[in-house]
Design a protein around this nucleic acid. Structure first.
Lengths: 239, 239
DNA sequence: CGTGCCCTTGAGTACAATCAACGTTCGTGG
DNA sequence: CCACGAACGTTGATTGTACTCAAGGGCACG
């Protein structure tokens, strides 16, 4: 059930059979969510963490104007609110952008895990730090990159993350977000996303339609978005 | 020496005398840095974490264009690269924006700490998660807020963080960053920062000059920046 | 065969960037 | 004590990227 997550972990460090068993045993149940349903609500204290098994979700914050900023996208194998283990209640919402299934880890089980398994705790900690690295890169996009670079970079990031857990390859991946949602990720308006996607298409870099990202030229797309996957720590980095 | 840090920790949760002693014992040395000197270099593996004792530092990433984006500001009491305990080497630089002094914690000492002290480990983990919360808020600013809101929000955030560790109060705090550096934090140009600071001044909200932020009207400044301190977790939140 | 959602395109606008010049402050050295 | 230079701050004029407003088109679903 949490195989995608183990794949993600083992890409970075060894996970012993004992640690794997402890992780699997910490799951209490699974839940499903419809698209646009809130998975975790801001300001509400919960007693468990959830791990995404399938679908795409996103963290976002609302503004008074009614706009919202998506601060991170999450795919199968990603913990959605592992940071909620120490940050209760959460400072943001998490929403299912497509139909989602999640595995539930009671805080008590994770808590016990941190008392008993030093290395596994660091592995979990690593993942929240990795989330921070991704957020830093989003800050760079939002602060300094052009619209074309932001979109190119986003599609490259998702490509690398999807490929790591086997949900995509160098040619593309499923990505059923609307242009309005892509706009909320990149700090643009839906109209400008539309025009920029057109330009990416016309430049022969990437096509985004009918729920898929089809990458025509990955090296060129990476160059266009100044994408360097180092911040994703895709290689072994024992904790 | 690490008193500011303990003040920061104890604002959120109890720290036992034993935990305090363990933390103090983990410090190997102190170092000083001149303004504009790199404290931690991107892509270079280090064997220790550093805690800022005095001064202001920032995390940043370079772009090919020569611009850079500062992704986080750090003040006395903040760990600069605690996430580097699991993320080696780092994906970003850390630079002293003013003269800085830091305390050095060898990874081995922190590593041992995580094996022996479950609660203290979660306290450290909490801090990296808190960094993530701050970064999320910066993403919102960079993605969706106007120039005026971004600056107002930044000054409010620093006010709250400074006050927590006794480096400022509701009236203001020392903030010797250049307008160019503020621009690198907020995704603006130095010229536009200058104009917007002028507007903040003329609106009677805040004055930024000669290395200080003088807040004329904190509630109004918070309203202007849509600042809600909840994301800083300033109150008790036991981990 | 509507209806609603999403995508697409056009026209006009605005916020912030860019380019350029000038002012201020402060440290240094003649 | 004052001249000089460098760094930083301020202001004006102009440009441009992305936003806003608006309308039309494609497609899926009931």
């Amino acid at each position: 059930m949490i195989d995608l997550h183990l794949k993600k972990l083992r890409a970075r460090d060894a996970v012993s059979a004992e640690e794997e068993a402890a992780l699997r045993a910490a799951v209490s149940e699974t839940r499903t969510f419809r698209a646009d349903q809130l998975i975790v609500k801001q300001r509400v204290t919960t007693n468990d963490c959830v791990l995404l098994l399938s679908g795409i979700s996103g963290c976002f914050k609302d503004l008074r104007s009614g706009e919202r900023q998506i601060t991170k996208l999450q795919i199968g194998g990603d913990f959605l609110d592992l940071h909620g283990l120490t940050l209760k209640p959460l400072d943001h919402n998490i929403i299912a952008l497509t139909p989602c299934t999640v595995a539930v880890f009671p805080h008590a089980a994770l808590h016990a895990l941190t008392e008993a398994h030093g290395h596994l705790t660091r592995l979990l900690w690593f993942q929240t730090n990795l989330d921070g690295a991704v957020q830093r890169e989003w800050e760079v996009s939002l602060g300094r990159r052009t619209a074309l670079q932001r979109l190119a970079h986003l599609f490259c990031e998702m490509q690398a993350r999807m490929e790591l857990v086997g949900l995509g390859d160098a040619k593309g991946y499923a990505f059923p977000l609307t242009q309005a949602e892509i706009a909320e990720c990149t700090g643009l308006t839906p109209v400008h996303v539309n025009r920029t996607l057109k330009e990416l298409r016309e430049r022969g870099l990437v096509e985004v339609r009918s729920g898929r990202v089809d990458i025509a030229d990955l090296p060129a797309l990476r160059a266009a978005g100044e994408f360097d996957p180092a911040y994703l720590y895709l290689d072994k980095c024992p904790v």
